[in-house]
């Protein structure tokens, strides 16, 4: 199993395609960082525009932590597409190249084969997120410094103290890993049903885009199905950035407003991963390799 996983990782990281996602993320992040470095004040004014009727927010709103939050908001919608590029290719790509049949005639059980491939896709996903963290969090911290975070929610604003933020990012990236592995698992599952990688990649992207749109739109009939869409739960990392307050409306350091929601969403995502991977194993074990 370990050998197989090593081989799968070796294959992933020897392919030029693998690095597209890393390059894309690097480009997106540096562009946003540059924009905020140049015009950050404008953006801060724009964000706090509604508050400025009655309040004045002073201080370094555009700091590294805030920039990272913006980047995560933007990118965690797009990163799934980059993950689909690799995950949905894991099996279909090999079928297309013709290497799948050679792999299957090797003395490895199909379950092992599927698990090794899935773990490899997951490791790729995690590495992509680590790269994202290095650029979006650490580089932003370096460029913009750190300070309190002032975030706008739908109905209120939250200010989180500088010293109370880093662990939240650790949690948020951990959660993002879970969310992105869910995407990888979906792509991976769909990857079995075609002998070219375009189909599963497009299918995975479509599912994500479609679900995300449903998750975003506040139409009552959609609201009924929202809790059942995994994309709704993929954004729960934001729960890390809401704080409990005491009776005097002071934030309590180290708290999360809604930990139940976070746990619930995590469990739903884990359930999705288990479902997709077991379904993959089930289908693949029965599959006749005709490619």
């Amino acid at each position: 199993m370990w050998t197989l996983l090593q081989i799968e990782l070796y294959k992933i990281f020897r392919r030029p395609r693998t690095y597209i996602a890393f390059v894309a993320i690097t480009a997106l992040i540096t562009i946003v960082q540059l924009g905020l470095k140049v015009d950050g004040k404008e953006y801060a004014a724009f964000v706090t525009a509604d508050l400025s009727n009655s309040l004045q927010v002073d201080g370094k709103i555009i700091n590294g932590y805030f920039v990272c939050y913006i980047l995560l908001q933007l990118l965690l919608v797009h990163v799934p597409l980059l993950i689909a590029l690799i995950a949905a290719d894991m099996i279909s790509g090999e079928a297309n190249m013709g290497t799948l049949r050679l792999m299957i005639t090797k003395p490895i059980s199909r379950t092992e084969f599927i698990l090794a491939k899935f773990f490899a896709a997951s490791i790729y996903t995690i590495l992509l997120l680590i790269w994202l963290a290095i650029l979006a969090l650490f580089l932003s911290m370096l460029i913009f410094g750190t300070d309190d975070m002032f975030l706008m929610k739908n109905n209120y604003a939250v200010q989180i103290e500088n010293a109370d933020i880093f662990w939240r990012y650790a949690g948020a990236f951990g959660f993002a890993c879970l969310a992105m592995i869910t995407v990888a698992a979906l792509g991976f599952f769909l990857s079995q049903f075609a002998e070219n990688s375009i189909g599963p990649i497009v299918a995975t992207m479509s599912v994500i885009i479609f679900f995300t749109i449903l998750s975003t739109m506040s139409i009552p009939i959609f609201n009924l199905i929202k809790p059942y869409l995994f994309t709704t739960h993929m954004v729960a990392w934001k729960e890390f950035f809401d704080v409990k307050v005491n009776a005097d409306n002071e934030t309590i350091k180290g708290t999360i407003q809604n930990p139940g929601k976070l746990i619930n969403s995590s469990l739903i995502l884990v359930a999705h991963i288990i479902l997709f991977v077991s379904a993959s194993i089930y289908v693949f074990k029965k599959k006749d390799v005709l490619s």
Binding site: S52, N53, S54, L55, Q56, V57, D58, G59, K60, I61, D147, D148, F150, A157, Q159, E161, N162
Partner: peptide, 14 residues
Amino acid sequence: IKRDNGISILPKGG
């Protein structure tokens, strides 16, 4: 009013 390394929220007009 200056906050030590932080963001301060004050009524409009400072």
